[in-house]
């Protein structure tokens, strides 16, 4: 009995030292890591819509409004869309212009099958999203006809769907959210906004 107690206490001591060390390391690395993450996200946004300043809007869908640095005119929106793919959630970062046409997308996080689903991260796949509008985001296997559809990856239709449908759903939400907010609608080019509202 005494031995068990002794061993338990020794293990406890090890754990306490380990925990203390971890807490100490965490205390000074956490702010740095978070700052790096924020900077990376900002860099990614800048890459999608260059020369802009971003304003974050939180809500049903969190997104960023990109405004031109000098004219303050709305250039577009960026957001992160997520849907379950074949091997877990697939996160896609996308940028659309003020008419909700896709500027470009980037698959930022996925755990898909190597060699099949992971091809979704390649430019060969993501480039086909450029310039697509909301109704052109149907996967060809679901009845869309290219070039007005997304061509499914070989052997990875589910991954393709996860990317295309997530982006599609998010644009839908974005459109609703933008048209509801009078401030942003007024700021954007009025004819384009009307076009979209239809």
């Amino acid at each position: 009995m005494k031995m068990f107690l002794q061993l338990g206490l020794i293990l406890l001591a090890f754990c306490m030292v380990a925990t203390a060390l971890l807490a100490y390391v965490n205390s000074f690395t956490k702010p740095r890591i978070e700052a790096i993450k924020l900077k990376e996200a900002a860099d990614a946004r800048n890459e999608l819509i260059p020369d802009s300043e971003f304003e974050e809007i939180t809500g049903d869908l969190s997104y960023y409004i990109a405004r031109d640095k000098t004219t303050k005119e709305i250039k577009g929106y960026t957001f992160t869309a997520e849907q379950i793919g074949y091997g877990g959630p697939v996160k896609t970062m996308a940028a659309v212009d003020k008419d909700f046409k896709i500027i470009s997308i980037k698959v930022i996080q996925q755990t898909e099958t190597p060699g099949l689903g992971t091809n979704a991260t390649l430019p060969k796949f993501t480039d086909q999203f450029k310039g697509k509008t909301l109704d052109q985001l149907t996967v060809d296997k679901d009845g869309g006809v290219p070039p007005n559809a997304i061509k499914a990856l070989t052997g990875a239709t589910i991954t393709t769907r996860a990317v295309a449908n997530a982006v599609k759903a998010s644009i839908d939400k974005l459109r609703a959210s933008v048209s509801q907010s009078p401030e942003t609608a007024a700021l954007s080019d009025s004819t384009a906004a009307l076009e979209v509202a239809k």
Binding site: L22, V25, F28, T29, R32, I33
Partner: peptide, 10 residues
Amino acid sequence: TIVDLSMAAF
């Protein structure tokens, strides 16, 4: 974990 955190930060 310490290696992971330090690498991420520095």
